[in-house]
Amino acid sequence: MSITIFHNPNCGTSRNVLQMIRDTGVEPEVVEYLKTGWTADQLTGLFAAAGLTPREAMRTRGDLAEGLGLLNEGTSDATILSAMVEHPVLVERPFVRTPRGTVLARPKETVLEVL
């Protein structure tokens, strides 16, 4: 089974989900998106597969999203998506993609839906 985790090694939830995947006996492809960055097409596809909008997939903890005005009601998905490309940390984590589907594994047990 091919599994990809879009991972931030500094995030406890992301580390826990990675271990949950490994506990199934599968070594996933690990994409450290803070190093590789995102394209708008990658994010659009990932969010569509998970059934989420950019706003729903945005990390709101910390000051960045608020500082960029992304939490305002009138902020468009296109603006949020553009900010996510420029600032990869704005994407909530971890996303996991498997042949059974794609999820934002938050809470971490959500990953069990696709394993």
Rank of each mutant, 00 (worst) to 15 (best):
P88D: 00
G101C: 03
P94E: 02
N16M: 15
D23K: 09
L68F: 05
T75L: 11
N72S: 15
W38T: 07
I3F: 12
N8I: 12
T53G: 06
A65D: 01
G51M: 04
A49S: 13
L34I: 04
A65V: 01
L46A: 08
L52S: 02
R100T: 14
P99L: 09
Q42D: 15
L71F: 01
D63C: 02
L68I: 05
V26D: 11
E32S: 07
V31C: 12
E32G: 12
A49M: 06
T24E: 13
I5D: 03
V103D: 07
P107S: 04
M1N: 10
V31G: 08
V17T: 07
L112T: 13
N72A: 15
S76Y: 13
A65K: 00
R15V: 06
R55M: 12
T110N: 13
G62K: 08
M84F: 02
D23N: 12
Y33E: 09
E66G: 13
T44F: 13
E86F: 02
R59D: 00
S14D: 12
A65P: 01
E27N: 05
P94L: 09
A48N: 10
R22A: 00
V17M: 10
G37F: 04
P94H: 06
I5A: 07
P94A: 02
L64E: 00
T98E: 06
E86K: 11
E27W: 04
T39Y: 00
M20A: 11
L70M: 14
P9A: 01
L34R: 04
E56T: 10
V114R: 02
L52W: 08
G74H: 08
V17A: 11
P99S: 05
D63S: 15
I21Q: 13
R22V: 02
M58Y: 01
E73D: 15
R106F: 06
M58E: 03
T24S: 10
N10S: 14
T98F: 03
T53R: 02
T13R: 12
A83E: 07
V17D: 13
E86D: 15
G67K: 00
V111F: 05
V30N: 01
N16D: 09
M1F: 11
P54W: 08
A65I: 01
L18Q: 09
F6Y: 15
E109K: 10
D23S: 07
S2Y: 09
E86S: 15
E66R: 11
